Amino acid sequence: MFACHFHASDYRVLLPELFVRAIDYVVSQDLHALDAGRHTIPGIDPDDAFFMILEYQTTAESPVGPEFHHKYCDVQFIIQGEEQFGWAELTDTQHQQLSQEYHYDPQRDICFFDPQLVTLSYQTMSHDQFYLFSPRTAHMPNLSVTTTSQVRKVVIKLKYPA
């Protein structure tokens, strides 16, 4: 997992150009005014990058468990509300085994699995940071910090440069 303040220049140096272009475009939008759902990024092939505005209530426990991907990285950040997430780095072997055991869905590019199989670290999302989850980073978002919170969040999906 990579966490970075929007005001820091680190990500512009460390991340691939596609990631920087997508992040910079999304944060320049009026994210409170956009409808919830999927959005394209002008000048970028929708198969390479797109973003979603999500609205939901956090929960004390995840109903689906941690998730990971194969094709896309997630960049997530909060627009409104508060949320905690769990995360764990997977080895290549774990990624492959969990994909087979828990039936990775290539259509949705997602695999959910039993949280007891990894040791998750927990972090509260800060409003001035984004969080990048690579395909080898299992993540369990949408968790309550102390009480249930109505959340509006951005998830940018970026094709993994494999």
Rank of each mutant, 00 (worst) to 15 (best):
C111I: 09
D47T: 14
Q57K: 14
W87T: 07
R38F: 01
A162M: 12
K71P: 02
S126K: 08
D74V: 01
H95M: 04
K159H: 15
H127C: 03
V75T: 00
T147N: 14
Q107M: 05
F130E: 07
L14S: 10
Q94G: 02
I79P: 04
V27D: 00
T147E: 15
H69A: 09
F6D: 07
H70V: 11
Q107T: 06
E17F: 00
D24E: 12
E83T: 01
E89Q: 12
T91G: 07
R152H: 11
P115C: 06
I156A: 01
V151M: 08
H39V: 08
L18E: 04
A22L: 05
S99C: 09
Q29I: 01
F19V: 00
Q123R: 13
Q80E: 09
E83P: 03
D30F: 07
F51C: 06
E101P: 13
V145L: 03
G37W: 04
I156N: 01
V13R: 07
M140Y: 10
C111W: 10
I79E: 02
T146G: 02
I53Y: 03
F51E: 02
S99K: 08
S134H: 12
T146H: 15
F2N: 13
A8M: 00
P66S: 07
D47W: 03
K159S: 15
Y131L: 10
L15R: 10
D74E: 11
I44K: 00
I78F: 05
L158D: 11
G43P: 07
A33D: 02
A8N: 12
A162D: 14
T148F: 10
S149F: 08
T58H: 12
C4N: 12
F19A: 03
S62Q: 05
T146I: 14
L54M: 14
S149H: 04
T148V: 14
N142Y: 02
L14H: 03
Q57I: 08
I156Y: 04
V13Y: 01
F77S: 05
L15Y: 08
L54S: 13
Q84I: 00
C111F: 08
I23S: 00
H5Q: 14
K157D: 03
T91F: 09
R136A: 07
T91Q: 06
S149T: 11
F19E: 01
L54V: 02
F130D: 04
T146E: 13
P16E: 01
V151A: 13
V13G: 01
Y56W: 10
V151D: 02
Q96Y: 09
G43N: 04
H139P: 02
Q84W: 00
H39K: 04
L34F: 12
E17Q: 11
T58K: 08
P106I: 10
F68V: 06
D74L: 09
H7C: 07
I110Y: 04
K71M: 07
P46I: 09
A162H: 15
H5P: 00
P115I: 04
S121D: 14
A8K: 06
T147Q: 15
S62C: 11
P115A: 10
W87K: 00
M140S: 12
H139T: 04
Q94A: 10
P161F: 15
G65M: 15
S99W: 09
D30Q: 12
G81V: 09
S99E: 09
P46Q: 08
Q129Y: 10
F85K: 07
F130N: 03
L120Y: 09
R108S: 06
A36L: 04
A22W: 01
F6L: 13
I41D: 02
P16L: 07
H139A: 07
A88G: 11
T93V: 13
D47G: 13
Y131A: 06
Q57M: 15
